[in-house]
């Protein structure tokens, strides 16, 4: 929900006593999520007599996660483990942009445009992309999907941009 993978994989940041950075950071992130969930459910009603309120279960699991996160963090200090894995920005970045582009264009522009755009942007995520074949495959896939989803499967998808339909 809010677990953005924002922790920079810079090894030098980690103090020496953290012997298993992967677990350490993972545990801290879980604790952060737990605190966030506890904060988010703090306005909900708790126990009413012996019956559960809306907030009881979220709080229960929130505290449980907080405890587990703390345990994992401790494990990260007392055990030996691998360094933080290296993150690459290119793949995640372009795939995310492609997904967002699809989400923002599907309503106003229709499926054909959204699918083509998302395909071409996602393709930027790999350094091996060759544009000629990518274009051909993009056209083929878009055609296939425009036949499969609205026609073969009967799902109500709008193919063309809204301004062209009017």
């Amino acid at each position: 929900m809010n677990a953005t993978p924002g922790h920079a994989p810079v090894k030098s940041i980690m103090p020496n006593w953290v012997r298993n950075p992967q677990e350490f950071v993972g545990g801290i992130a879980l604790m952060a999520i737990a605190v966030f969930a506890l904060w988010a459910s703090s306005d909900l009603q708790g126990m009413r007599g012996f019956s559960f309120g809306a907030g009881t279960a979220p709080r229960m699991f929130g505290f449980l996660l907080l405890g587990l996160g703390a345990l994992i963090t401790v494990v990260g200090v007392v055990t030996e483990g691998p360094h933080l894995a290296k993150y690459h920005w290119r793949g995640p970045f372009f795939v995310t942009i492609a997904i967002l582009t699809f989400a923002f264009t599907i309503r106003p522009m229709g499926m054909i445009f959204a699918a083509m755009a998302a395909f071409l942007i996602a393709a930027c995520g790999s350094p091996e992309t060759r544009w000629k074949e990518t274009l051909i495959v993009a056209v083929c896939l878009t055609t296939f999907c425009s036949l499969l989803f609205p026609y073969a499967l009967g799902l109500p998808l709008q193919l063309l941009p809204t301004f062209m339909i009017r």
């Binding site: 499926m111 998302a118 395909f119 790999s126 799902l155 109500p156």
Partner: peptide
Amino acid sequence: PYRLMFPSIVVFCCIGIYSVNNAP
């Protein structure tokens, strides 16, 4: 090749998710 496969999967998944509720 994977370079052609992965954008296809991204697009296919996007359309699939969108079609469940028609929700961007």
